[in-house]
Design a protein around this nucleic acid. Structure first.
Lengths: 251, 251
DNA sequence: CCTAGTCCACTGGTCAGACCAGTCACAGCT
DNA sequence: AGCTGTGACTGGTCTGACCAGTGGACTAGG
């Protein structure tokens, strides 16, 4: 046995994979943009010089990744979709299931991200953005009289505005994803909360405190308040033994 | 036009999708565990009572989601894979490309997560875990004399240990994912850093400071040091105008 | 008895061709 | 001009076929 170069294991590349790669590359290069259409399957067959089965396998993969959408009968062909976080959320949900992700971990994650976004936002915010933030408070106020879903919607907007002020769309997407996963985990418990109006009022009060701290420019205080609020809001759903990690974030 | 019940728009469910759902449900229920094998495609054809094309489309989707792997010729059939973050990373990479995710946002994300994990870890750590953390420092020390890849590996271990002490595998996975994306963005620039030995020594020193703060139980100090370190390490790659958001985290 | 080599049933990858139900654009009618 | 019916095309699914690989069973040699 002579000492030779270290070889890499080689696995066969399937035809449908090279089609997926070509489409994704075109997307990355900008040759393909959301809203545009792919040629029909039968047309792709001639362009890629493979059979329709192969083209279809590639399309199914792209579709499951949220890149395209095929509709039967549509003469325009498969549509290139704008990015959406559903595919990302799907992966996180899978992670949550397989990795036995606990609610505590998810809440902890939200406390971290939300606190940090608020901290950054209280430094970067312009007066106009502060006014916008106060506007969302008013919207939340009004939504209380409608129903819990409306309030929840307004709350989501609040956090989106925060993430935008912090100039971090990654945080925005993360919040969206994790929020979706958390809601799917506790939705049954929270749906018919007995005193939801009181909850909403309390939540509104907390948000107002956060905005006040942001106005004062005290990022650490704003973040601390926000984390404390989220702790108070969710701790009831978290088993006793797992709350330590959450409390470590509320100092 | 009478006032009727509100109907939901209906989109056709394709056969391959219901196969995917069945497999994922079996996985969630625990009827299917990593390492197990699926029946062969031709066997699945009879079980699901569909054609092989349909079975194959389902398998391609599952494969692209990192759930199974098919190998030609394997008489045991497709293999159920353990969870891996590659599919998750794929989605984040797509997000980075399509959403024009900036390096600043990614670094910011890592500063936030890393700081928070360290803050939690400094409260929850046991004496044994502190010793383990110091052990990784020694490993980093030794790796300096090997090469940069070894040092990078040891550094990764350090952060994994932190995440484990903080009892948050979600943070662990996020770090892994974002780290991979960041490296792919700046790998060309960092590969032949002229004075990499000096960089490694400096990085080791910083890690030691963090461990010291963890030993003292000062979570805020540990987090601040860690974030400052990461800022120093990466700020050079971030455009001038985007550093504000990073500095807001180093107060 | 155990080992080493051969062989073949079966695997997944790909292809070709067919049928169906659905959609949309357009021609022709009112 | 507005409406409507039609038909060319779409994607969804099925059938059946071929090929190159894999790995277990079987066999020949120790």
């Amino acid at each position: 046995m002579v000492e030779g170069p270290r070889f890499q294991p080689v696995q066969p590349v399937r035809a449908y994979q090279r089609i997926v790669e070509q489409v994704e590359e075109a997307l990355a290069r900008g040759d393909l943009t959301p809203g545009q259409r792919l040629p029909s399957e039968r047309e792709l067959v001639t362009q890629f010089a493979v059979s329709r089965s192969t083209v279809r396998e590639a399309l199914r993969v792209l579709e499951s990744n949220g890149v395209v959408r095929s509709r039967p009968g549509d003469p325009n062909g498969p549509e290139i979709l704008p990015f959406s976080s559903v595919a990302l959320r799907k992966q996180v949900v899978r992670l949550a299931r397989v990795d036995q992700l606990t609610l505590a971990e998810l809440i902890s994650f939200r406390m971290i991200m939300d606190g940090a976004a608020i901290q950054v936002a209280s430094r970067l915010r312009t007066p106009e953005q502060l006014a916008e933030l106060e506007g969302t408070l008013v919207a939340m106020q009004n939504a209380i009289d409608v129903d819990f879903a409306a309030f929840s919607e307004a709350d989501l907007t609040f956090h989106d505005v925060i993430a935008r002020i912090a100039r971090n769309s990654l945080i925005e997407t993360c919040n969206e994803v994790v929020r979706g996963v958390v809601l799917s985990l506790i939705s049954d418990k929270i749906a018919h909360a007995p005193n939801s109006r009181a909850l909403m009022l309390e939540s509104l009060q907390h948000h107002a405190e956060v905005v006040e701290a942001i106005r004062a420019g005290d990022g650490h205080a704003a973040a601390r308040i926000a984390r404390q609020n989220m702790y108070d809001y969710y701790a009831g759903y978290v088993p006793e033994g797992e709350r330590d990690a959450l409390r470590a974030l509320t100092d």
